[in-house]
């Protein structure tokens, strides 16, 4: 079991049969996510290895992990939203235990994790895990 929020997405996805509806859903998730403030879109928050621009900022509050993120590409922004549902609210010590590849696989979105993909989901997950480990 992943977070409740992520399980809800998994449930929603079960009703979406073709990839077009799934992408539509992911894009909508991205659109409804509060945009990151421009002031936070700085070099230090930029995730490298992404062909589009991606920013992440992590927080730890009372031992609970959370991150905000954004991208100038709509699909990537949607994937940021999915990852926020997967990682946010998790105890800091549990971030490393999340198998993002397997969880995204449940959504049929793990194709975005292959080494060839330049949309940077892989880099985002690495950034989330390394930041959590260093905190």
């Amino acid at each position: 079991m992943a977070t409740e929020a992520f399980e809800e997405i998994v449930e929603d996805f079960e009703f979406l049969e073709d990839w077009e509806d799934r992408y539509r859903f992911v894009i909508e998730l991205g659109k409804s996510m509060t945009p990151m403030e421009d002031a936070l879109k700085v070099e230090a928050n930029k995730v490298h290895g992404c062909a589009s621009q991606v920013w992440l900022q992590t927080f730890v509050d009372g031992g609970v992990f959370r991150f905000d993120g954004d991208s100038d590409a709509l699909i990537v922004r949607g994937l940021v939203a999915v990852l926020r549902n997967l990682f946010n609210g998790v105890a800091l010590g549990d971030v490393a235990k999340i198998d993002a590849h397997a969880e995204l696989g449940r959504l049929g979105l793990n194709e975005h994790l292959s080494a060839q993909r330049s949309n940077g989901v892989r880099s985002m997950i690495e950034r989330i895990k390394s930041t959590a480990a260093a905190t």
């Binding site: 589009s52 100038d72 590409a73 709509l74 990537v76 949309n119």
Partner: peptide, 12 residues
């Protein structure tokens, strides 16, 4: 829409 969004959809 970003160029990467478009190419991702086209790829599908």
């Amino acid at each position: 829409a970003h160029a990467h969004d478009i190419s991702t959809i086209l790829d599908k």
